[in-house]
Computed example of a mutant assay.
Amino acid sequence: MLYVILVAAIIIFWLVAVDRPVLKVSFLHGKISKVKGHFPAKFRHNVEEIASIVPFDGSFKVYQQRTGTKLVFTDAVPKKVQQRIRNVFPHQGFRNRSSNKRA
């Protein structure tokens, strides 16, 4: 009985505490250094253009939530660059899978 409670606690901890972004992009000197997840081509092109104009280091993550998507930037990304990336972010490209279902 104790092992069932232990397994349930581990599963709950994993679901709550583990960082699971839909997309993670890292930059180094204005170039994309690492990409993990689905990165739409048009959004990638726009982000590369922004990074070439204003080179920066840092990263951003895209999280899927019930209300939509959420962009999270590291502190190294300047605020003006953050806003430019938010402006070109394709909200339809990261549509919630459950929103397409009908009752």
Rank of each mutant, 00 (worst) to 15 (best):
63 Y>R: 11
35 V>F: 07
76 A>Q: 15
54 V>K: 14
90 P>A: 12
3 Y>M: 01
82 Q>E: 13
65 Q>P: 00
16 V>K: 00
8 A>F: 05
28 L>H: 06
34 K>Y: 06
39 F>Y: 14
83 Q>C: 07
71 L>T: 01
34 K>S: 10
39 F>E: 11
70 K>W: 08
14 W>P: 00
14 W>T: 04
5 I>K: 05
67 T>C: 08
74 T>L: 04
14 W>G: 01
68 G>D: 12
22 V>A: 11
25 V>A: 03
3 Y>D: 02
54 V>T: 15
31 K>T: 00
7 V>M: 04
69 T>S: 15
80 K>L: 10
102 R>W: 03
58 G>F: 09
69 T>K: 05
90 P>Y: 08
40 P>G: 09
103 A>T: 15
2 L>G: 14
83 Q>K: 13
82 Q>A: 00
103 A>L: 15
90 P>G: 09
59 S>T: 10
11 I>N: 04
30 G>V: 06
56 F>P: 04
79 K>I: 01
96 N>A: 10
79 K>H: 12
50 I>D: 02
16 V>N: 01
87 N>I: 10
49 E>K: 15
88 V>I: 08
76 A>G: 09
103 A>V: 15
31 K>L: 00
44 R>V: 14
39 F>H: 06
61 K>Y: 08
89 F>N: 02
42 K>E: 06
39 F>Q: 15
21 P>L: 09
50 I>S: 12
25 V>N: 05
83 Q>S: 14
87 N>A: 12
48 E>C: 07
97 R>H: 11
51 A>Q: 03
33 S>P: 01
53 I>P: 06
26 S>H: 07
36 K>H: 03
23 L>A: 00
18 V>N: 01
45 H>W: 13
85 I>P: 04
93 G>K: 07
4 V>A: 14
50 I>G: 13
14 W>F: 07
83 Q>G: 10
94 F>T: 04
100 N>P: 01
96 N>H: 14
77 V>C: 07
59 S>K: 12
42 K>R: 03
48 E>P: 01
34 K>W: 05
45 H>G: 13
38 H>Q: 05
50 I>A: 13
88 V>Y: 06
25 V>I: 07
46 N>Q: 12
59 S>W: 09
54 V>A: 12
91 H>D: 06
50 I>L: 14
